[in-house]
Design a protein around this nucleic acid. Structure first.
Lengths: 327, 327
DNA sequence: TTGTAAGCGTTATCAG
DNA sequence: CTGATAACGCTTACAA
């Protein structure tokens, strides 16, 4: 029934509301032992549960932060989220995760909803399409940390990886292994990570003196990917290696290979940008570029926590290094 | 700065707070067109955002529900959660997911925290170890739906699958394919699903007149699983088939097989209880028992929503059927 | 050491 | 059609 309030406890214990409040907030310093016991008992008898909503209204903080992930189907997002949750959990703050589903409109809704719910801060994997919203938060000095993707033309606190450099390295690795016909598959270039990865690919090819064959570059939605792969492999000179821009792309590639009876490692070599949980279980094992999701999440959480607590933090871009895992 | 309140808007628009409140809640019926415009403009000028916390305090509902999953690493949990979120999203309610990590203490914390935050209802994948807490909610008639696991000795609304029967069927399927030495691996029997699955296994074996070899039954924590598998396969008569009690177990089995150079389909046949996203990508494909996660989530959400809206619902157990997917 | 009273930003009631 | 005014359940000066 949940109707029992602090006033009820106070009455039952024969003290005032403020005393009960003190008790609940562990301000025992000046509290009589008997008072303490009386209150304790009253609480137990009535089954009293404090109402955090009321507390939040007064204190102007909710002890909640929001995480808005661009797409929860990416393993990377869930790993980062777990790290953030763990950190905040240790600090008595609850992190709530929302999935924007790569949809700027949904992202907007969530940002507004969470702010209306008065969350103390936000960690956002931005879709990149809500520039004004992002900017407002910065201008208002609302605690926010951007994750994974850069926001253009904005001095904001953000955590990213060296997408370009690590892709560069991966391509160089392919080249060292003798590959010359290297293809690259990525989702539409709407966000910085994808652009940077493609940049890395192109740069590596150029630096090694290989002319880029635009037929080898697939830029397509997940739903169109297989059709594009079909075309790619029907070329008179199909590629011998393929770089998958992320884990979603990779799964499509894997299905495509299976459906068309092509064998991994024999018909095509693969590198994937992302943490694939079962990469080492596939035969032959797949080479992946892994981002330090846990560390990134932790760092984001630390920074947000500091910001929430009014620490001055300059809006820099923090770059983590990815690693090529040759399995 | 987020300081602009309804009072500010009221002043700016030259009306009273109540009028602004009406406006915000779309109660235009008796509102003058000019007033409407004035308020609209004031809101825009000041960049006013309503404070849901204050609203919730007054209305005694937060438009939030909580989902407490036993372990978010199970694919099943995330699928169910997505379904629940989708349903509530359509009804203007925000679902927040918490991960109890199979830890009854964490579960308790989350239940208490979420209730303190005044969520309108709860969907719980119970660890099973917080009987009193569960009972309290039922007694108080707090809106709660249990998912996946039965709570013992409690008349509660819960959504489960026919764990016993579908395991039975799977084992019969193994037997039909000629297997006689069938092993069964499961995590500790602390929850109903695991017990029921083991029951199904035993029953099928008995019904087919096969004596159960207790060496073929592994009941162990994830961390001890490989050691147990090692023992299992070192038996003078190792099994020819293995039933994995869930997806976590399955991953361990897969790793074990790989590490010990055993081949799926050749050295051992496998059935997994759970939705494995890449089951069809493994070679040879793995047979899985899938539960209708989406439908189950949707049903749970519907029931909770009804309860929240004071509909009388009798505390029954709703059983969904799983399906064997022979890939 | 404990009590009083004034908010926090809304919504609800009812009068104007 | 609009405006006072009183809640909602808690925290927090300040008073006693």
């Amino acid at each position: 029934m949940e109707k029992v309030t602090m006033a009820d406890v106070a009455k039952e214990a024969g003290v005032s509301k403020s005393t009960v409040s003190q008790f609940l907030n562990n301000r025992f310093e000046y509290m009589g032992e008997k008072t303490k016991l009386k209150i304790e008992e009253a609480i137990k008898n009535l089954g009293y549960q404090p109402n955090y909503i009321a507390r939040s209204l007064k204190q102007k903080r909710t002890s909640m932060v929001g995480i808005i992930v661009a797409n929860i189907m990416h393993r990377f997002s869930t790993e980062v989220s777990r790290a953030i949750e763990d950190y905040f959990h240790e600090h008595g703050i609850h992190a709530i995760v929302c999935n924007a589903d790569d949809d700027p409109q949904k992202e907007k809704n969530y940002i507004e909803m969470l702010r209306a719910k008065q969350v103390d801060g936000l960690i956002i994997f931005p879709t990149g399409q809500n520039h004004d919203l992002y900017k407002n938060m910065i201008v208002e000095d609302y605690p926010v940390v951007f994750m994974d993707r850069k926001v253009e033309n904005l001095k904001a606190l953000s955590i990213v990886t060296d997408n370009m450099q690590s892709t560069y390295n991966a391509i160089v690795y392919f080249l060292k292994r003798g590959h010359r016909k290297i293809a690259f598959a990525v989702q539409p270039l709407t966000i910085s990570t994808r652009k940077d990865r493609l940049e890395g690919y192109k740069k590596a090819m150029k630096d090694e003196g290989i002319t880029i064959n635009s037929d080898y570059i697939i830029e397509a939605n997940i739903s169109d990917l297989k059709a594009n792969l079909e075309k790619l492999f029907s070329l008179s000179e199909p590629p011998t290696a393929l770089f998958s821009g992320n884990d979603r792309v990779f799964l499509e590639v894997l299905e495509f290979l299976k459906e068309t009876n092509r064998a991994l490692g024999k018909d095509i070599d693969l590198i994937v940008f992302d943490n694939i949980p079962f990469a080492h279980l596939v035969e032959p094992p797949i080479t992946v570029i892994t981002q330090p999701a846990f560390e990134m999440g932790k760092k984001a959480a630390e920074l947000l926590f500091a910001k929430i607590n009014k620490t001055e933090i300059k809006p820099e871009e923090i770059v983590f290094q990815s690693k090529i895992m040759i399995q």
